[in-house]
Write a protein that binds this DNA or RNA. Structure first.
Lengths: 327, 327
DNA sequence: CTCACACATGAGAGCGCTTCCATGGCAATA
DNA sequence: TATTGCCATGGAAGCGCTCTCATGTGTGAG
């Protein structure tokens, strides 16, 4: 600010010698305006450096101007995940078509009420919640739920879109079994994410079917945890011949941890991830994983909330196995 | 919406049987209120599912409630860059200390005026521009510049914070020279980024000093371009013995492209990157690069804009060499 | 020359909220 | 009992904008 007053529409109107209504008409391009008025107003705008205030505009026009993406998580580091970038990128395109902007917000697990604050903003034309939790969603009053959709399943009350974790896990683990692995360990994800349970169930079911022991280690979707998990697994179950991590980032960490212990991949131990992030094909060995139609999911979510498409309780998208070198 | 009207402060006040002023006092916690009023208002809030509208609040209180990060780029894919995630994460923490939220926005190179729209929003308590360009910055009227800082150098008009690209490049390239490389190629970044020129200058200067030929290929900071650049370089200058990429993502792509051609790294060709992203130490061979104090930079920028710290034209942060396996 | 009909314009209400200010009520003091 | 002072409260004025509606101006047809 520096003492500088920000120019308002009033200032523009006064400078141009027209009414506020006329100035507004010229600036928004809505409604009639004479050439003379148009000239005077645009001149005043550039002279004063006028920029309309989005908040006031949204307030007055009773219509949002932004699509918000809220990522729920226990640490802001969640935003480092390339997954979020892909969601945001896609949403930005969908939103741009409808002439609205996008914004990204982080809602700490410890302050779920922030979500309600977002949902209640009239400046928003919609809210997409990534990795929703039931407590967070429940801070949002029912009357506002119509403005919200979720990416990630396991919560009720709003339409949700997610990859089919169950069949995705199934595909990866069966691939490991098919290629002769039997002592398969799994590195899961954060306990508070419902999709993690679904994936672990799928893994356990296959292990039961094939009469194999389950070896589950809790992960948190980070690479660092993956390296630690690798060490933990090889210590507890030295004969492990495959590791499935529910996140590529973690799988990459596992690769690193295994490498550090002199374990060869895939000769000694096969490693598979989940997500197919960009780096998956860049690692050495290239990571076998399951690819997610993140862009499709994000597009569906963005469209659903922007167009207020009826109530679709939960939509699942297929995840497909990508076999590379690590398994 | 679904026909549901969103509850307003008026509704709350009416339900609680108090005036709007009292309701506001209770909800914000500012100003006196009797226990009875407090109870009635909070009851009404939960009953109606009332959530204050941030936009209206910002408008009325004449104070922002959000720190916005705007990333300039030719494609929204810029947001995929882990760099942005780190900036956002750091900013989120700084902002949280001051009880403001953060939001991330993408400003296309083709629509620079979007930046002015952000700068003019009264709902914001500050704006951090990542990868600023002069045209974009110039859409922001002078009176609004006090609310803006930049991460990335080469533009004037607002305080800027950046890594010292020049000395960073210097460190990496000299390391290549020291380890006996002489036919060093460089993969640069997008032409519109001023910092790219600075880095290229530093590279060229060293090449001149050591009497080496310069081999420059244009990059765009993506991995895909890195792979293509590797092919291009090895075709045009088959005797190349080192490649320096001005982005780790690109360097990883170079690694991939080289691997595809059967070139051994670092035996045949050394590869060095720039940024030290998380994956740099996960690649095989692990990437030699230059680490950036991104968190420090982002924190400085966020603090500067939030606290309106005087005019610091341009602040540079040191980038330091990290030697791993690839060079 | 008069009438009707566009078109351009301004006054003003209102979006949901905060905040200043004046008022009313009460307990403590004289 | 009369007075002081404070706390709780409501009225009302805005914040910057959009948009409806009534008014004014100019054109062409009759």
């Amino acid at each position: 600010m520096r003492g500088q007053r920000i120019a308002t529409l009033d200032d523009v109107a006064r400078t141009a010698g027209v009414s506020r209504a006329t100035a507004s008409r010229v600036i928004t391009g809505q409604g009639p305006a004479s050439a003379r008025a148009r000239d005077r107003v645009t001149a005043a705008v550039t002279k004063l450096g006028y920029v309309p205030d989005a908040a006031a505009r949204a307030l007055a026009s009773r219509s949002g101007t932004r699509l918000a993406i809220a990522v729920i998580g226990h640490t802001a580091a969640i935003l480092d995940d390339p997954y979020v970038g892909r969601v945001l990128t896609t949403a930005a395109h969908i939103a741009a078509e409808r002439e609205v902007g996008v914004s990204l917000h982080w809602v700490p697990l410890s302050a779920p009420a922030a979500l309600a604050g977002l949902a209640g903003s009239r400046g928003l034309s919609g809210l997409v919640v990534v990795n929703p939790t039931q407590p967070a969603l429940e801070t949002v009053p029912r009357s506002l739920r119509g403005r919200v959709v979720a990416i990630g399943v396991g919560t009720s009350g709003v339409p949700s879109f997610d990859v089919d974790n169950r069949s995705g896990t199934d595909g990866v683990v069966r691939h490991l079994v098919t290629t002769g692995r039997r002592r398969i360990a799994m590195v899961t994800g954060p306990a508070w994410l419902p999709c993690v349970d679904r994936a672990r169930d799928a893994y356990q079911q296959i292990m039961n079917e094939t009469g194999c022991e389950t070896r589950v280690v809790r992960g948190d979707f980070t690479a660092a945890r993956g390296a630690a998990a690798a060490a933990e697994i090889m210590t507890r179950w030295p004969d492990t011949d495959a590791v499935f991590a529910l996140s590529d980032l973690t799988a990459l960490g596992v690769l690193d941890g295994l490498h550090a212990r002199g374990v060869r991949v895939p000769a000694d131990v096969a490693v598979a991830g989940f997500d197919d992030i960009a780096f998956a094909c860049l690692s050495r060995p290239a990571l076998t994983t399951s690819t997610h139609p993140v862009e499709e999911i994000a597009a569906a979510a963005a469209k659903a909330v922007l167009d207020r498409t009826g109530d679709t309780p939960a939509t699942f998208f297929p995840s497909t196995l990508v076999v590379r070198e690590s398994a």
